[in-house]
Amino acid sequence: MLEVRDLVAGYGGVPILRGLSIDVQPGEIVAVLGANGVGKTTLNRAISGLIRTTSGAIRFDGAPISGLSAPDIVAAGLIHVPEGRKIFPNMSVRENLELGSYRRGRVNRAANLERVFGIFPRLRERTGQFAGTLSGGEQQMLAIGRGLMAEPRLIIMDEPSLGLSPLLVEEMFALISRIAAEGLAVMLVEQNVVQSLELAARAYVLENGAVVMAGSADDLKRDPRLMKTYLGM
């Protein structure tokens, strides 16, 4: 469904991604793991059209998307829930969600709104509240909800657990697994290795802008290199 091949991208001529390749199949949860600064966010920004790629290919459903603008990639159904949430703080929860269907899913807006409120009942209680006044966890729910409003075919979640309390992290991962259980493909980009591997079927581990480990989540969980690097064992 999503194919990234030998991707090179960066800022101001400095490459952050150095020939990176990953795949996401329909309906699967794929984790992309790595510490701070290995290029996870750059990868997301390149896939969703926020930065231009230097070389390599990105295909979605077989069609190249690396030259498309961010709105065109949204229109294709590839939705990116960004790191730091990037919600609209000056607007109500409802307006934030409505804007999720600005480009895609507009005809089903009312039904999708109900669906999102079904997944995140806490957002329903806060429909009229300014998004900027929500707690961190609620803002994350809002960001995911806004993404779901566009009827994604593949959703990229960049660090959804960042800045949340351990209890909320559990809740967030449970919600993501529930969303994915409906058949949505999820690319989960995380630093939280243990919980991401519980959720995902397959995973890639990035270092220095390239994939250094890849495989099924079960295999990676037992891989001594991963244990050493991320779990200190």
Binding site: A70, V74, A75, I79, K86, F88, E95, E98, L99, R103
Partner: peptide
């Protein structure tokens, strides 16, 4: 209107707006 909401969204959060499909 959606256009008006998009204007307010872009005013405060350009990246979030682009990722919601707003040009």
């Amino acid at each position: 209107t959606d256009t008006g909401k998009a204007i307010r969204a872009v005013a405060r959060e350009k990246t979030g707006a682009a990722l919601s499909g707003i040009n």
